[in-house]
Amino acid sequence: NQASVVANTLIPINTALTLVMMRSEVVTPVGIPAEDIPRLVSMTVNRAVPLGTTLMPDMVKGYA
C-alpha cells in the first residue's frame, strides 16, 4: 500500500506548507503520494485542512 500525505496539524487556508505540517501514512482513500512531500513544501492550501486529513491534489494550489 502506498503512503499518502496527511496533515500533522490543523493547516489554515492559504498557509504555505512546511515539512512539520505533513506526515506520511497509509490511508483510504489514497491522497497525494508521500514521495511528493518535498515538492509540496512552500505550496499553499486552498482550504483549511484539519489534523489527520489526507491531502488531496485539489487542496494544494499548483499541485494538480
Results as ranks from 00 to 15, higher is better:
49 V>F: 03
3 A>C: 04
54 T>M: 03
21 M>N: 10
35 E>Q: 15
9 T>S: 08
19 L>V: 13
20 V>N: 11
58 D>R: 08
15 T>P: 01
6 V>A: 03
24 S>V: 14
37 I>D: 00
43 M>N: 05
45 V>S: 07
12 P>A: 14
54 T>S: 05
27 V>Y: 02
12 P>W: 04
15 T>D: 04
4 S>G: 04
42 S>T: 12
48 A>F: 13
22 M>I: 14
37 I>H: 02
58 D>M: 08
47 R>S: 14
26 V>M: 14
28 T>Q: 12
4 S>V: 01
35 E>N: 15
39 R>K: 08
48 A>T: 14
55 L>C: 02
1 N>E: 09
11 I>T: 00
2 Q>C: 05
22 M>E: 01
28 T>E: 14
34 A>L: 04
8 N>D: 13
37 I>T: 09
56 M>F: 10
30 V>Y: 11
32 I>S: 01
24 S>I: 07
50 P>N: 08
13 I>F: 15
59 M>S: 06
36 D>N: 13
48 A>N: 12
63 Y>E: 03
31 G>M: 02
62 G>Y: 10
19 L>Y: 09
21 M>D: 06
8 N>G: 09
35 E>I: 11
57 P>S: 12
63 Y>A: 04
53 T>C: 05
32 I>N: 00
28 T>A: 11
51 L>R: 14
61 K>A: 15
13 I>P: 07
6 V>P: 02
13 I>E: 15
15 T>Y: 08
25 E>F: 06
34 A>K: 09
43 M>V: 04
27 V>Q: 04
13 I>D: 11
61 K>L: 12
41 V>Y: 04
18 T>C: 03
53 T>L: 10
21 M>G: 03
12 P>G: 09
14 N>A: 09
48 A>K: 10
36 D>S: 11
63 Y>P: 04
5 V>I: 10
55 L>K: 00
52 G>C: 04
60 V>I: 11
18 T>Q: 08
43 M>P: 01
7 A>T: 15
24 S>M: 07
61 K>I: 08
64 A>V: 11
4 S>D: 01
63 Y>D: 03
21 M>F: 05
18 T>V: 07
37 I>C: 04
14 N>R: 10
62 G>L: 08
57 P>H: 08
34 A>P: 08
14 N>L: 06
38 P>H: 13
42 S>G: 13
41 V>D: 03
61 K>E: 15
25 E>A: 10
56 M>V: 10
57 P>V: 05
28 T>K: 12
21 M>T: 03
57 P>D: 06
63 Y>G: 04
48 A>Q: 13
40 L>W: 02
11 I>Y: 01
52 G>T: 02
7 A>G: 03
28 T>S: 11
30 V>Q: 15
31 G>D: 00
28 T>D: 14
38 P>C: 05
10 L>C: 05
62 G>K: 08
22 M>H: 01
13 I>Y: 13
22 M>L: 09
23 R>T: 08
39 R>T: 13
39 R>F: 11
59 M>E: 03
